[in-house]
């Protein structure tokens, strides 16, 4: 009997040691491991990726406006709205996943012109943003990738190079 109890207690101690060891190896608790492998997700993960504007207020558009959302809540807008070269706007955004509202602030501190109700259709690979301030102002985006030219800088000879003769 006593032998059986001792054996049972030994097993119990082993189990407890095993459990503590397992908990002790939890990365988040380890002071020796870095946080590099931890993914911080601050927005609805369905938004993550690049989206290309294809429609505005029910009208199809063939323009170069791309929005890239990072899971951490960073965004970048690549837009060709001032001539042939892209302009890039970066910032941070957040989602209210109860009301499905997206809001954001640019890196220069400017807030977005409005918050947006968002809908993600993962099957159609579509993102729909509806202005909160102006209901019915709806933009539709298709899943895409950031164009190469959006990441290049333009260069042209400027008048500053002119030297008086």
């Amino acid at each position: 009997m006593i032998q059986r109890v001792k054996k049972y207690l030994l097993h119990l101690v082993c189990i407890m040691i095993l459990a503590v060891g397992t908990v002790g190896c939890d990365k988040s608790d380890s002071s020796d491991n870095s946080n590099e492998n931890i993914e911080t997700i601050n927005i609805d993960v369905r938004l993550a990726g690049c989206w290309h504007l294809v429609s505005f207020c029910d009208a199809s558009v063939d323009v170069d406006i791309y929005i890239n959302f990072d899971k951490s809540g960073q965004f970048k807008i690549y837009q060709r709205t001032e001539g042939p070269a892209y302009t890039v706007f970066g910032g941070t955004c957040a989602t209210d996943e109860v009301n499905f509202v997206l809001s954001g602030v640019y890196d220069d501190g400017t807030e977005w012109n409005t918050d947006y109700k968002y809908t993600v259709d993962t099957e159609a690979q579509e993102l729909i943003l509806e202005s909160v301030a102006t209901p019915d102002e709806v933009s539709v985006y298709k899943s895409s990738s950031v164009p190469v030219s959006a990441t290049l800088s333009t260069r042209s000879a400027s008048a500053d190079d002119v030297k008086p003769l």
């Binding site: 406006i65 929005i67 706007f89 400017t110 409005t114």
Partner: peptide
């Protein structure tokens, strides 16, 4: 060129 008319614009020219 395409013109897109929105009710509100960001003050810094950003699309959203």
């Amino acid at each position: 060129f395409v013109v897109i008319a929105k009710e509100e614009l960001s003050t810094n020219g950003g699309w959203l």
